[in-house]
């Protein structure tokens, strides 16, 4: 159960090897150890993540999870919930394809859509069933500012996140009366393994900063947040910039 101060007892990470997911788990564990279910593709990255959390005193479970294998998602969630209610589930998997390749190559575009959107919708439906069953719980969905207004430089990824964002925003509304909550998180540029080698955009943040915002957002009952906070105003402004101007912005 999540307690009165917003502290969960059991955390499910979908895409558990994500740098942001790891930072969130570490941030919770720093206050007091909690049970963590690592749902991710098997491999050294998952094993290392499990060992790191176990070293912090967390009981850890590993579950195989492939975002494109949608038929298996309900079972993944059931397995994760077998050991206790899922208090917080973090939807953290995602791919950031090369932007030019993505709009020129069918395979790349479809793969991104399948992981970032189709996989996320499938997981969301499975999580919703579990939250309704338990009558409580929070889904934290890692969206992106890239989904708020598509840009020439990154619109395939942006479109997957736009769909993702709309789905999880709606899911939050649908789950309200059943006791479930959804927190949609829209980071800007995060310096994680997803963005290694890329030049950091303005207002870039670390996975730890995203984690801090997530933990506070869950405790405060937030439904959406931007990281860093000022990104909200920036995006709100950008939404209203006329298209000819927007086109020429160096973003």
């Amino acid at each position: 159960m999540i307690n009165a101060l917003g502290v969960p007892q059991r955390l499910l990470l979908l895409g558990a090897t994500s740098d942001i997911a790891q930072a969130v788990a570490r941030r919770y564990a720093a206050d007091q150890p909690l049970a963590v279910v690592l749902a991710a593709r098997p491999g050294p990255r998952r094993s290392e993540a499990a060992a790191a959390l176990a070293a912090l005193g967390c009981p850890v479970e590993e579950v195989d999870f492939e975002a494109t294998d949608t038929a298996a998602h309900a079972e993944v969630v059931r397995t994760a919930a077998a050991g206790g209610d899922i208090d917080v589930a973090l939807v953290a998997f995602g791919v950031l394809p090369d932007a030019e390749e993505a709009w020129n190559d069918v395979g790349t575009a479809v793969a991104a859509a399948q992981v970032n959107y189709v996989g996320a919708v499938s997981v969301g439906v499975a999580l919703a069933a579990q939250l309704r069953r338990q009558g409580h719980g929070v889904v934290v969905a890692l969206s992106s500012v890239a989904g708020e207004r598509p840009r020439r430089s990154n619109f395939v990824y942006g479109s997957t996140k736009a769909g993702f964002d709309a789905f999880y925003t709606g899911l939050g509304e649908a789950l309200r009366e059943h006791g479930g909550r959804v927190l949609v998180v829209r980071p800007g540029f995060v310096r994680s393994k997803m963005t290694t080698g890329m030049e950091a955009a303005p207002l870039s943040v670390t996975p730890e900063e995203v984690a801090e915002a997530v933990v506070n957002g869950v405790a405060n009952g937030k439904e959406q947040l931007w990281v860093p906070g000022p990104m909200r105003a920036v995006m709100s402004g950008l939404r209203h910039v006329p298209r000819p101007v927007f086109r020429r912005l160096p973003i």
Binding site: M1, I2, A4, E177, G179
Partner: peptide, 18 residues
Amino acid sequence: TAGRPLAGWGRTAPTVAL
């Protein structure tokens, strides 16, 4: 059948039950 949110006197951590 819809379930109702219930909380304690402190009004923290409400959950839904029938």
